[in-house]
Nucleic acid binder design. Structure first.
Lengths: 232, 232
DNA sequence: CGCTTAGTTGAGTTCGTTCAACGACTGTGG
DNA sequence: CCACAGTCGTTGAACGAACTCAACTAAGCG
């Protein structure tokens, strides 16, 4: 993982601390709920492998997917620094997580400012993604929204090495609908249009991206070419 | 400002550093653009006074308001830690900002871990608000969305002391529309319904909240009662 | 073999949009 | 002082996007 040019290099002391910071690994099955809204988890996680997503629900069951998780993403920071979790997390594929203890976060801030800075970097990056999603859900048409989402997921997955050998994005159309804020029927009809243009193909494993340039164009989206990100 | 119970108390060394961290103040008029999408600002700001908002636009002019800024909010963190700004910021009322230099952020992380932690706290808090807004825009009806937004703004404004003596929320219906992802006409009709129920009254200064409990109920929203927040 | 889950499609309805016009108010220049 | 333009809120009418309801297919699984 760390070998990927996508992630920044750590100094030996940093690496040493991070490995001691780690208190265990957690593996979950597809469909499993990693963290639940309202819980007070004492842990902070990093995704090592697999796909997941963050979501919130209203009382009557309406669900909004907020973002997707891939290797390198931090999970549970909100719960760690602010107490209660305000969103849930579910695995889309088999996921392995690296578990950190909440208490040690303070020593990370105290003794490794560069790593503390990395955490802030990751938080700012997450905020940036949410900004883009909000713009999309609020102001793009259904077709643009769908194209944007798939282009975004494809782009993010490629960066972390999840898109090798024609991997599919492991989501159902229900996930897409709950991300875009659309009904499942309309989502289906919209994805159909993208498939008819040969931008994607839907398989039993999820969504195959055939033409990510076409998708980005249909969405009016320019992915930003940011540099190496930290991986804690 | 600092006297408000809403903000946490700082130790003398923290206060000393923060005051040296500060390099100046910036005052802007209503309607002025504080930061522009695409700019590479070398500064980080804290809002001292006034109302503003963060937004993104699509190429054809469609605008999405992402969040509103009030005293205590950090501005430009994305640009500071990640380079280019991906959103713009505009003032709604006369705004005064506290200016920090980007370079000193590193010494803040190095020498004042508790303040670094505060910055992460604020970033996580901003992310939490965006989560809620995304849920709202994606899954709530127009009426629920409008009620949620106004209840949210009222709640946030009260916490920072901006809601004294029947102050109005200084927005136009266009701002509300661009926040909710609705057209201005439909926004008007939706706000009319809230006004007919005596939850709000629209004045030339903006929106008067008459019944914030009613609004929260109409939105199906339960504000979280978080404790003291940091104020850098 | 029936059961379940996921995708597909059509028909009718609802919600939100666009277009258009109008009133109230503000500021500006003649 | 009035005429004018500009902004903002309001409302009606017609249209279109997205929703719900419903039925059907295909695949996976006990």
């Amino acid at each position: 993982m760390r070998g990927l040019t996508h992630f920044r290099d750590f100094t030996p002391p940093e690496l040493d601390f991070v490995s001691r910071f780690k208190t265990g690994e957690l593996s979950v099955e597809p469909g499993a709920i990693v963290l639940m809204e309202g819980s007070h988890s004492a842990h902070l996680y990093t995704v090592l492998e697999g796909w997941g997503f963050r979501y919130k629900t209203l009382e009557d069951g309406r669900r909004q997917i907020l973002n997707y998780l891939m290797p390198g993403d931090l999970v549970g920071l909100q719960g760690t620094v602010m107490g209660e979790m305000q969103h849930s997390i579910e695995a889309l594929s088999p996921v392995t997580l690296c578990v950190f203890e909440r208490g040690r976060l303070h020593s990370l801030f105290a003794d490794h400012p560069s790593l503390a800075y990395d955490i802030t970097w990751i938080a700012a990056s997450e905020e940036r993604m949410l900004d883009s999603h909000l713009l999309s859900v609020g102001r793009r048409t259904a077709l643009e929204r769908a194209a944007y989402l798939l282009a975004f997921l494809y782009d993010k997955a490629v960066r972390v090495g999840l898109m090798e050998k024609d991997m599919a994005i492991p989501v159902t159309q229900q996930h897409v609908a709950d991300t875009l804020g659309l009904s499942i029927v309309h989502t289906n009809k919209t994805l159909r249009k993208l498939a008819d243009r040969d931008f994607i193909r839907w398989t039993d494993k999820g969504c195959l991206v055939l033409d990510h340039v076409g998708l980005a164009q249909a969405a009016g989206w320019h992915p930003d070419n940011r540099g190496a990100r930290p991986f804690i």
